[in-house]
Every structure is written in C-alpha cells, then in structure tokens.
C-alpha cells in the first residue's frame, strides 16, 4: 500500500498549524506555550536558583533539569498512573540534552534551571512540542543562550517521507511507520536531538532529515516572534 495522500490532506513537508505564545505562567521566571495540530505543550522555567539537594550542584557550571509530563487525560483516555513513568523520564532527559547545548551555563555555577513541560493534549510529536515550548520559556526567562532550539518530528509512513506525523500516521493502516524526532540549532544547523523509532535505511533517513529543513526554519521564526510579541511595545523612554 502506498501512502500518496496524507490523512489530513497536508503536503508531505507541511507541519500542522502552529500557535506559540510567551509568558503564559505568571509565577514562572519564563514560560511558553506551543501548539502544533492537536498537541499542546506548556513550559515553565524557574531559575537559575540554588540546587537542592546540594550534592547535585556543579561548581563549574549550572545544571538544567527537565520534567516532562503528559497529563493523565491528554491521550486517548486510558487511565494513566500519575507521576513520572519510564517514558516521561526518558523524554525529560533527551529534552534536557536537546536544549542544554545552547545555554551558557558557566555564568551560573552551583545553580539549577528547572524546566517543567506539561502537555494537556497530545497527538504525537509531544517531545518536539515540549522542546519548542521550552525554547520560548528559556528565552522569556532572560537566560543567556546562543539560539532558540527548534524541533519537529519527521518520519516515514509506508515508504513516503513526511514531516510532523500525527498519531494516526504513527499507526497507519496496513503500513509501517518510522518516527524520527529532530531538534536543531537554527543558526548553525547542528542537530541536538535525533531519535528513531522504526526500521529505516540510510538514504531514506537522510531524505527525511533534509525534508525537515524548511519546516524547522518556519518553526524557528514562529518561536522568535512569539517571544518578541510579548515584549514589543515594552520599550518606552
């Protein structure tokens, strides 16, 4: 079976509709909201602040902790046990690795930056949405960072490379699917996250990654303007 038309009628390199906002959590030092299709992510950044427990602190540079949480009602509706599970811990870790490379942490020795990712609604691509929301939140928190990481999932449905898979496309009827979440630093093009779920050969993988260039650039622009919009006009005097 050939996947020649996407379930929702998008072009193969077209991400789902995106909305982004900064400053959605008032108590946090910085916060972000990122919606892609039916996946919604909120990110809140607290810090830099002192590390507790103390032994985790690094006297040479600050540390970043990412807490990922898919809310119990966010998925198809099966009851989830609340609290972090194996999957949430893994995604928290890879998200941390994806964003840490842009942050300049040597200015904040012995401190921690806590990033909370909450997903009230998910329809695949949640770790990428989380990373995008975290980028907005970190910039909104006024941290020193080289760039804002932008992320999107690419993949194969059947043998067709596509961008930003929906949940339906991750489980296509009578076909195999490959899911490749990808995060890059837009100004350099360096990849900070690349995971792969499924079987794919090298050519197809490269093809899928190449396809992500355009949508990632678009997402990077959306992330930047989300932060700019919050502060636009706050500069009298």
């Amino acid at each position: 079976m050939k996947y020649d038309k996407r379930y929702d009628g998008r072009a193969f390199d077209e991400p789902r509709p995106i909305e982004a906002k900064a400053g959605v959590v008032k108590n946090a030092n910085g916060s972000g909201y990122f919606k892609i299709g039916n996946t919604i992510a909120y990110a809140a950044v607290y810090g830099p602040k002192e590390v507790y427990p103390k032994f985790l602190s690094n006297p040479k540079k600050g540390i970043v902790r990412v807490h990922y949480n898919m809310m119990a009602f966010s998925g198809p509706g099966e009851r989830n046990r609340p609290g972090p599970n194996r999957r949430a811990k893994e995604i928290g870790l890879v998200s941390q690795k994806a964003i840490i490379s842009v942050l300049e942490l040597d200015k904040y020795p012995n401190s921690v930056i806590d990033v909370y990712l909450e997903l009230p609604q998910t329809d695949a691509g949640s770790r990428c949405a989380g990373i995008c929301a975290a980028s907005i939140a970190l910039a909104d928190a006024g941290l020193t960072m080289k760039d804002m990481v932008s992320a999107v999932a690419v993949g194969l449905v059947g043998d067709t490379p596509v961008v930003d898979l929906s949940y339906k496309e991750e489980q296509p009827d009578g076909m195999e699917a490959v899911d490749i979440p990808l995060a890059i630093i837009p100004s350099t093009g360096e990849i900070t996250l690349l995971q792969m779920d499924g079987i794919v050969d090298k050519d197809m993988l490269m093809k899928a990654i190449e396809m992500s260039t355009k949508p990632l650039k678009k997402i990077a622009d959306i992330l930047r303007s989300a932060v700019q919009d919050k502060y636009q006009g706050e500069q009298n005097e």
Binding site: K146, M148, A220, R224, Q232, Q235
Partner: peptide
C-alpha cells in the same frame, strides 16, 4: 535600533 531581539537573531 530599539527593537526587541531574541536569542539567535542576526
């Protein structure tokens, strides 16, 4: 001049 800039902006 005086525009809002964000990380990574040229």
């Amino acid at each position: 001049e005086k525009s809002v800039v964000v990380p990574g902006l040229i």
